[in-house]
Computed example of a mutant assay.
Amino acid sequence: MVATNSLPPEFDRGVVTTVHQGDCHVSKDLDLTYSTVLGSCVSACIRDREAGVGGMNHFLLAEQPNATSEKFGASARYGAFAMEQLINMVLTRGTGRKSNLEIKVFGGGNINSALNDVGARNVEFVYDFLRNEGYVLSGADVGGTFARRVLFKPHSGRAFVKRLDSTDNARIANDELALVKRRPAVRPPADDIELF
């Protein structure tokens, strides 16, 4: 993982696919780079070291965590779905062995005071999720009061993080606030099945 302002050469060529809020992409293409911009949102970058298959998700909790009596609220199930979806896709396309997974987490910045530090709650959720599922985190760049641009090479697992300035923070904060206000919480059916 690299945190700097100059782009390493390996990220300056090939195909770039943007990962938007709610997306989950997986590939083993050598020349592919996943790119996303995160404010209080979180992205996990997960790779099967042996198979060279990796992916990125991007999620923002859609309602305040205190909305229900559950530990993280109904919206945390959306985060759980995003994590389960990415892990299952990488396992399916890779070796199928959880021990081969390399997991990096990015985002969770506190860039909008109107969101009651959703970023910190997102980071707490992801760390708890990984710990409860028995996964070990290989790297992270989370928290702070800034947005980030994250580039991830799914085949090599290399990540590049650029911290964005206050102009970008304001734009991203407004976009996230608009999403939270208009998007209903995603609730899976009561009998949903967890695949691992």
Score class of each variant (00 low, 15 high):
residue 72 F to L: 05
residue 135 Y to K: 07
residue 97 R to C: 13
residue 159 A to I: 08
residue 161 V to Y: 06
residue 77 R to E: 15
residue 99 S to M: 15
residue 75 S to A: 15
residue 153 K to S: 07
residue 84 E to N: 13
residue 72 F to G: 04
residue 144 G to N: 07
residue 54 G to T: 02
residue 97 R to A: 11
residue 145 T to P: 04
residue 78 Y to S: 00
residue 85 Q to D: 15
residue 117 D to I: 00
residue 144 G to M: 12
residue 159 A to F: 02
residue 122 N to M: 13
residue 110 N to T: 04
residue 131 R to F: 11
residue 155 H to T: 09
residue 132 N to G: 03
residue 113 S to Q: 12
residue 143 G to Q: 04
residue 130 L to C: 12
residue 122 N to E: 13
residue 109 G to D: 04
residue 108 G to K: 00
residue 150 V to Q: 00
residue 94 G to L: 03
residue 120 A to Y: 12
residue 79 G to Q: 00
residue 161 V to A: 03
residue 136 V to R: 13
residue 74 A to L: 06
residue 99 S to Y: 05
residue 87 I to D: 11
residue 161 V to I: 09
residue 113 S to E: 10
residue 70 E to R: 08
residue 59 F to D: 01
residue 84 E to A: 08
residue 71 K to T: 15
residue 109 G to I: 01
residue 108 G to H: 02
residue 147 A to K: 09
residue 107 G to A: 07
residue 127 Y to G: 05
residue 56 M to K: 00
residue 129 F to G: 01
residue 62 A to E: 02
residue 84 E to Y: 14
residue 57 N to H: 04
residue 155 H to C: 13
residue 58 H to K: 01
residue 141 D to L: 10
residue 86 L to A: 03
residue 64 Q to E: 13
residue 93 R to A: 15
residue 109 G to H: 07
residue 55 G to I: 01
residue 131 R to I: 14
residue 57 N to P: 04
residue 89 M to F: 04
residue 94 G to N: 08
residue 71 K to G: 14
residue 145 T to E: 06
residue 69 S to M: 10
residue 74 A to V: 03
residue 75 S to I: 14
residue 140 A to T: 02
residue 157 G to M: 08
residue 85 Q to I: 05
residue 136 V to I: 14
residue 87 I to W: 09
residue 123 V to P: 12
residue 81 F to R: 13
residue 117 D to N: 14
residue 94 G to M: 05
residue 95 T to I: 01
residue 103 I to G: 01
residue 137 L to N: 02
residue 147 A to C: 12
residue 104 K to V: 07
residue 154 P to Q: 00
residue 80 A to C: 09
residue 148 R to D: 01
residue 162 K to N: 10
residue 78 Y to V: 00
residue 59 F to G: 00
residue 88 N to H: 13
residue 109 G to W: 09
residue 99 S to V: 12
residue 137 L to H: 03
residue 62 A to N: 05
residue 106 F to R: 02
residue 99 S to A: 15
residue 130 L to D: 13
residue 134 G to V: 09
residue 82 A to K: 07
residue 103 I to P: 02
residue 60 L to M: 09
residue 121 R to E: 14
residue 159 A to M: 08
